[in-house]
């Protein structure tokens, strides 16, 4: 067994785990944060994306013990005070999902994209950077629209899409 201490969505957690526990298993099974999904389990599909010290990584291909001391953000950690994160709001507004299985990974990927590339994202950039996320419903069109809108909304620090709708 090995001890792992992480900050997950702002909260400190410590656990004794088998060293072979994958980060995604640790999040889902130990912490019951089941928003992070396991899709392909071979690091292709991106359903398991979480942010590790601010960078999107595939939690199905990361050992929990190897990221001891790190800060992890999952899809559950995005919304603040009951209000959806601007990127979540944009996915809702633009219907950037069909079955929803890939959505947590898509949104974590989208926020990472904004962190890396800023708030003005064109379609080509978004599609290229979605390389590591697969939507089994093939609903990419609205996902791309949602990411462009969400990126812009993040720049304004609010969720103008929601306000407009109300």
């Amino acid at each position: 067994m090995a001890t792992v201490s992480l900050t997950v969505n702002g909260k400190a957690v410590t656990a004794n785990i088998d060293p072979r526990t994958l980060l995604v298993q640790f999040l889902r099974e130990n912490l019951r944060l089941t928003g992070t999904h396991v899709g392909c389990d071979t690091s292709q599909c991106g359903a398991c994306l979480v942010h590790l010290d601010g960078k999107a990584v595939k939690s199905c291909t990361t050992l929990a013990v190897a990221v001891d001391g790190a800060s992890v953000t999952t899809i559950e950690g995005l919304a603040a005070d009951g209000a959806l994160h601007p990127m979540q709001e944009a996915f809702r507004e633009h219907h950037g999902l069909q079955c929803g299985f890939c959505t947590p990974g898509m949104i974590m990927s989208a926020v990472d994209m904004v962190n890396r590339r800023g708030h003005q994202l064109d379609e080509k950039t978004i599609r290229e950077d979605l390389d590591g996320n697969i939507c089994r419903c093939t609903g990419y069109h609205n996902i791309v629209k949602a990411i462009a809108a969400g990126a812009e909304a993040m720049g304004k620090g609010t969720a103008p899409v929601r306000q407009a709708a109300e």
């Binding site: 991106g46 960078k55 999107a56 990584v57 595939k58 990927s109 994209m113 890396r116 590591g132 996320n133």
Partner: peptide
């Protein structure tokens, strides 16, 4: 190489 998330690791 790979995709953005693979490149982070």
């Amino acid at each position: 190489i790979g995709d953005p998330h693979v490149r982070h690791r």
